[in-house]
Design a protein around this nucleic acid. Structure first.
Length: 730
DNA sequence: AGACTAGAAACC
DNA sequence: GTTTCTAGTCTA
């Protein structure tokens, strides 16, 4: 007697565990593999799950087991290596496999739709058939049109005959036309001549290419404008020649049409994109194309790291230092860069991390010899590195935040028909509204945050919970007059218009660019030279090249110099270098002017005098002394509650339960502390920090502690989650 | 007694 | 995640 086949099924949702089912009647175990989708009943509801394991025993009582209703796939849609990766991810980030699958699969895939490559439908005339009656003028006209054209796709038909479908149906019925489908994947374009690589680029390509088919980690450090993309392109091309696919991860914002066009123009395979701006169906098509192998290269954001490639041969993480690789919203908080590295390891392929300003984590790994290091030091087209100038704001008279030297430099550059970029990391008009008499500032009722005045709608906005309100006429405390203090992009823009009435100004921040294509249109105005000044927040800083941009002004970056977040200085350094890199990419020399009240800040000095490399190197020993990453591994358990103190009380219990686990697994568990912004969106928040020298210690401690935390959270009004390798303020 | 509800537990 | 169960309320 043979044992029955048991299928462990993970449901792509927030369910905390997998469920065991019997294989459907008449289906042999040989026809079932992990990674296939199955239709199951879960209680009352019909769900789609993914086979996580094919087993021959189960801890569940026989009478409780149901059979799988239907097997949906003939071959796994989560290929074995990917399933293994997802299981590792689930363990590392302490998430149920179902929750990981929910992120890893597009909606239509989660619903069980068969993989589908987009098709274009063509119509053409065929011989024979019954001619249309003389009165059917529409059929005659459509038939004649089709005969002249030979064959037509549906979009072309719709342009000429808006109401063609019913007419075509009659023609099809009479046997006069035929319907064809063809893959509508973006076909490889006629190839533009590839760039000649310089010696550094070629050396980087050769170093990576020598290790195709094996796991190797490479850190590619290239100053802005040094042509990292050329290296990626050459490597993708080689992967394609080997019959393999390539994954190129980009941060949220850098995914521009421009980048994609460059890849399409230079690569012989199909280049697909994958990001949150696509429709469900578009994401599903890309997922299907990765699975079938039709997609040669996928350029995508964070979640593209989970695509089911048929034969992945190369992974690239561009701007690897970028914080948007870390998911920090949902309960499943993964770091796409780190997952990409693990994916390369499990799949035996090279992974390239590229950045002008590598994260301290990657730099540390490189110094320890875990990553091979490659440098690109030469800027393309012979552009010189920008000159840096610090402007001491102490005692300086500012006109809406702009110092006389910066204004003078702007005038010179604009007069010479050059362009200026102004960076100000604050949107809105004024970040503070306060009372002239008592000095009380307006705060959000639901958050520990100041309200920001926006000119756009004349209202006060909270940037943390999104609530807005009408500004009060007078101080609610003492009845005094209110005034606006501080500087946002909305205030600088009209000021610039006054000062430079002849110059086109483009503002790019999340307020100015609500709709999808507005960023692109704004950037196009800058690129074409129609606008002389680009003003904006972080959104403006990444991945764009403007040849005539010769002056970059950093209006104020002082907030970050003394922030409590231990990564604030690292981020500021990266930001300054990245923004500065926008200057002088063309032939003209660029200049970066940094306005600050702290011109002698030691770390800032090192950054400006000796560059990012030296800046990062001096930060490392500080991290080591403070027992912080990359020398320690961190995790936080965060909790929030409606009442003040409940979240902290819960974490206090967790902390007290942790003592033995902490000792056993060499992990330090700190007492809970209120979060930097304790109150947010009406919730009180606290967090518990765990720290260990080794990732496996931390992981083991969490594995022991989290079930206890889950039990303690029950019958308590707290919401909580765990964040492994947190990137938010700790 | 029955209607209703919030919270817990089960779902295989 | 959704559905079901349970124990507690509230109403006639």
């Amino acid at each position: 007697m043979t044992a029955e086949t048991i299928l462990r099924v993970a449901i792509p949702s927030a369910l905390p565990e997998s469920f065991d089912y019997l294989a459907p009647a008449g289906v042999s175990a040989a026809a079932l593999s992990p990674g296939m989708r199955v239709a199951v009943r879960l209680g009352r509801q019909a769900r789609v799950g993914v086979i996580a394991e094919v087993a021959d025993e189960t801890a569940v009582a026989r009478e409780r087991l149901k059979s799988v209703e239907r097997v949906l796939d003939e071959s796994p849609v989560v290929p074995a290596p990917l399933l293994g990766l997802l299981q590792w991810v689930a363990r590392y980030y302490h998430q149920p496999l179902g929750g990981v699958l929910r992120t890893a699969m597009p909606l239509l895939a989660r619903r069980g739709a068969p993989p589908q490559i987009p098709q274009t439908v063509f119509w053409e005339c065929v011989a024979g058939g019954e001619p249309p009656s003389p009165r059917a003028v529409k059929q005659r006209a459509l038939l004649d049109y089709l005969e002249d054209a030979g064959r037509l796709d549906e979009a072309a038909l719709a342009r000429r005959f808006p109401d063609w479908r019913p007419v075509m149906r009659r023609l099809l019925h009479r046997g006069l036309v035929a319907r064809h489908e063809e893959s509508a994947m973006p076909a490889p374009a006629p190839r533009a001549p590839g760039h000649r690589l310089n010696r550094e680029q070629q050396a980087a390509v050769d170093a990576v290419a020598a290790g195709f088919g094996e796991f190797h980690r490479h850190l590619l450090e290239g100053v802005t404008g040094s042509g990292k993309t050329e290296v990626y392109l050459a490597l993708c091309e080689q992967a394609l020649e080997r019959g393999e696919q390539a994954l190129v991860l980009v941060p949220e914002i850098a995914l521009t049409a421009q980048t994609v066009e460059r890849f399409r123009a230079q690569l012989p395979g199909t280049v697909c994109v994958f990001h949150s701006g696509l429709t469900d169906r578009e994401r599903f098509h890309c997922w299907s194309a990765a699975l079938s192998g039709d997609a040669g290269v996928v350029i995508g954001t964070r979640s593209a790291v989970f695509l089911p490639f048929k034969r992945l041969g190369l992974a690239v993480v561009d701007e690897e230092h970028d914080a948007s690789y870390k998911q920090s919203e949902s309960s499943f908080r993964y770091h796409a860069r780190d997952v990409a590295i693990k994916r390369a390891q499990t799949g035996s392929l090279p992974v390239v991390l590229g950045s002008a300003t590598p994260s301290l984590e990657s730099l540390h790994n490189a110094l320890e010899g875990r990553y091979a290091r490659r440098h690109l030091t030469r800027r393309a087209a012979g552009a010189a590195p920008p000159r840096w100038r610090v402007i001491d704001l102490r005692g300086s008279r500012l006109e809406d935040g702009l110092s006389p030297p910066l204004l003078a430099a702007m005038r010179d550059r604009l007069a010479a028909r050059e362009q200026v970029l102004l960076f100000l990391n604050r949107r809105g008009y004024a970040p503070v509204m306060l009372c002239r008499d008592c000095g009380g500032a307006l705060s959000c009722a639901r958050c520990d945050a100041r309200l920001v005045y926006h000119l756009r709608d004349g209202r006060l906005h909270c940037h943390h919970c999104g609530v807005s309100s009408r500004p009060p006429g007078a101080c609610s405390g003492c009845g005094g007059d209110m005034r606006l203090v501080g500087l946002g992009t909305e205030k600088v823009e009209p000021h610039l218009t006054r000062l430079f009435p002849e110059t086109g100004i483009v503002r790019i921040d999340t307020d100015a660019v609500r709709r999808k294509n507005e960023v692109g249109r704004g950037l196009e105005r800058v690129r074409s030279g129609d606008a002389g000044i680009a003003l904006g927040t972080r959104r403006l800083t990444k991945g764009h090249a403007f040849p005539a941009m010769t002056l970059v002004g950093i209006v104020n970056a002082d907030q970050s110099l003394f922030a409590a977040d231990f990564r604030a200085i690292e981020r500021l350094g990266q930001l300054i270098v990245q923004v500065g890199g926008r200057a002088g990419r063309g032939a003209a020399a660029g200049e970066v002017m940094l306005q600050t009240h702290h011109p002698h800040h030691p770390q800032l000095q090192v950054l400006l005098k000796s560059g990012y490399g030296a800046f990062a190197l001096q930060l490392l020993p500080q991290r080591e002394a403070a027992q912080l990453p990359p020398y320690r591994h961190l995790a936080v358990i965060r909790a929030r509650s409606a009442g003040s103190g409940e979240a902290a009380a819960f974490l206090d219990l967790v902390h007290r339960s942790s003592e033995e686990f902490a000792r056993r697994h060499a992990t330090q568990v700190f007492p809970p502390a209120p979060m930097m912004m304790e109150k947010k969106a009406g919730h009180y928040r606290a967090q518990l920090l765990l720290s260990a020298a080794a990732a496996h210690s931390l992981n083991a401690c969490l594995a022991a502690l989290l079930p206890v935390a889950a039990r303690l959270a029950r019958r308590r009004k707290v919401r909580w989650h765990v964040d492994v390798d947190p990137c938010e303020a700790v």
